[in-house]
Design a protein around this nucleic acid. Structure first.
Lengths: 352, 352
DNA sequence: CCGCAATATGTTAGCGTTAACGGTTTTTGT
DNA sequence: ACAAAAACCGTTAACGCTAACATATTGCGG
């Protein structure tokens, strides 16, 4: 009753040949058994499986991929891992890929276009079955590579622009517009904007553009704004809020629009701690719909970015195309971000 | 001035041969140029590079890996992506790997041992240069696979137990003990515990064990406890706190120990919202040291789990071993989690 | 008991790259 | 000027597996 891998640790890595010899059949038959492909008698199947188990054999996908020219990897290229949003997209992607043969390989760009280009190049050199990449803005070289790769490419998060192949996301411009409209409808007039100092965060920029565009239509504009980079977003939200409010004591602001929920939550806490009536004195809104807003003393108005759903849909596009192995493409899925009014965007107090 | 890849999209994927033909040198020379290995004259180097650029050639690492039997992948196997902690570990890993040839491939286990086994098997079939895997508890089969793989294995997060090869983490038992001691020293007596309903979260269990152990030594025990699973942790923290406090009105609790900062933060908010004096009436502590605690109205006592540092150190062990390509090993790094007293674990009010 | 279809197994030839070694040329030291 | 060393580049044979095509082996109707 040998227990498998209790044997001496093999110096030379195991190959099909070892299993083949141990079980007395050809390498091809072993290969067939291990992949459940082709006809193999129940007897030999058992024999082979036993031998493989016994030896502790693990197939070599590198060799398999080269021989069959099928690589079950999906390249996922995202800017960062440190702010809840991309991990959640990843979760969505993994959820779907778990049900398939596909495996995600992640590359992080840190919001740097050149870095994205490098990462993409490295990823493509694994000849993945597909690419999921954040954003629609890439260097010319990157676009060229993706265009020539001959595999499904899904650009995620954003649909305001020209996709190379497929895309899944929301319109950030529209999200900005929608929020602006809601704020205007609620009667707010003196609006502050607080966001990240990230010239390369195109999605934040687009939201901002949509936002100001709608304000302009109503003859309004951003009264003041404040930007940050790095650090604890929650804390920064507090600090920035304090700064912008103190800068506008004479003619106080009546609304603050934050470019993400984290700083928004910080702002909300600042207000509550300082006895500022939200949304009576001032309204607040963020962006993303991150789960933990549920636990805050007041629910921050926000707009859901459909992160999980984006991950799922993107992975599904790849999975579908891999199995149908058709070159069909050009699927654009625009998800509709839902506005969540929460408790911080009610119609403001009217003087009786 | 041909612009590269503006040509007709190639049906047949490009190979070294194409570049070789286009530049009039042997495939071997092209290979040498593209890898910066071996002697190549400046003239041919330029010629080859130009041809490669022109064609839009991307090397095939699958073939390269097979030929050289060097695969620059690191398998990273973690339970989840959805709770801040593992993304942060990933960030640490990526930080280090960026400076090397190595690429991380992530597998998610959802805290299921069988799933871990499957994922590990799939990962190993890529013949990675190393494995970084969360926890010390694995199925027998998984341990056997890792033992036989002949590559560096780094088990992360936890060092309370037997490592297969190397390990980087903290002692969760010790973390639990340390927190218990701090709580006792501050004079708290009636202690509630709030945590996750996760029989398979060994690290949470170990913290709990260490915690109760030290309480026992002082003749104390957990007065009451509350468990949850799923949902918004912040909100759950509120709800559980409310529940446990309402259940103990006659002889009120004077301390709540949360198994993670998220529910701890929820609890803190519940207390503040309800006029409970923290830490006068009741002390609070969490675990993890997540960044956003900085922004809370009161800083929750916590214990840093050194996540970024763990990721970094683990990646460094792999990187070092890959380049020295020595089989040396068995490095155990136990990081010391620092207790952060914050504002919620001060000595309680003494009756004058 | 022959022949033809399954079924079951083996053989051959790559997949695209790199290691290892072999030739040329060029450079260098004396 | 000539050997020895260096620089440069090509040839051959894997790497471990699988597609595609043989080749047994079995079953079964007529």
């Amino acid at each position: 009753m040998s227990q498998g891998s209790g044997n001496t640790p093999p110096k030379r890595p195991l190959t099909l040949r070892d299993v083949s010899e141990a079980s007395g059949v050809s390498e091809m038959t072993v290969s067939r058994v291990l992949r459940n492909r082709g006809d193999v008698s129940e007897a030999t199947r058992a024999k082979v499986l036993e031998a493989a188990r016994e030896l502790g054999y693990v197939p070599n996908k590198i060799a398999g991929a080269l021989a069959s020219s099928r690589v079950n990897l999906v390249a996922v290229i995202i800017p960062s891992m440190s702010n809840m949003v991309f991990p959640e997209v990843m979760t969505g992607i993994n959820d779907v890929l778990e049900g398939t043969e596909l495996q995600a390989v992640v590359g992080i760009t840190n919001y740097k276009p050149e870095r994205e280009e490098t990462v993409l190049y490295q990823m493509l050199s694994w000849r993945p079955s597909g690419v999921i990449i954040a954003g629609l803005e890439h260097t010319e070289a990157a676009k060229a590579m993706m265009g020539a790769a001959g595999i499904p490419i899904v650009e995620i998060m954003d649909t305001d622009g020209e996709a190379i192949d497929s895309a899944v996301g929301i319109s950030h411009r529209r999200a900005g517009r929608k929020m602006a409209q809601a704020i205007i409808d609620a009667g707010y007039k003196r609006i502050g904007f607080l966001g990240t100092k990230m010239p390369l965060d195109h999605r934040a920029r687009k939201r901002f553009e949509g936002f100001t565009e709608v304000l302009a239509k109503s003859g309004l504009e951003i009264t003041d704004s404040e930007f940050y980079s790095g650090g604890s977003a929650l804390k920064k939200g507090r600090e920035m809020t304090e700064a912008i409010l103190k800068r506008n004591v004479d003619e106080p602001l009546d609304f603050l629009y934050y470019s993400n929920d984290m700083i928004g939550a910080g702002g909300l806490m600042y207000c509550l701690d300082n006895g500022i009536d939200v949304p009576g004195d001032i309204g607040l809104a963020g962006f993303n719909g991150i789960e933990f807003l549920d636990g805050l003393p007041r629910k921050l108005a926000t707009m859901d970015a459909c992160r999980l759903e984006i991950g799922r849909a993107a992975a599904e596009i790849i999975a579908k195309r891999v199995e149908s192995d058709g070159p069909a493409g050009g699927e654009i899925i625009t998800l509709e971000p839902s506005l969540e009014i929460g408790d911080t965007l009610k119609r403001k107090k009217k003087p009786l």
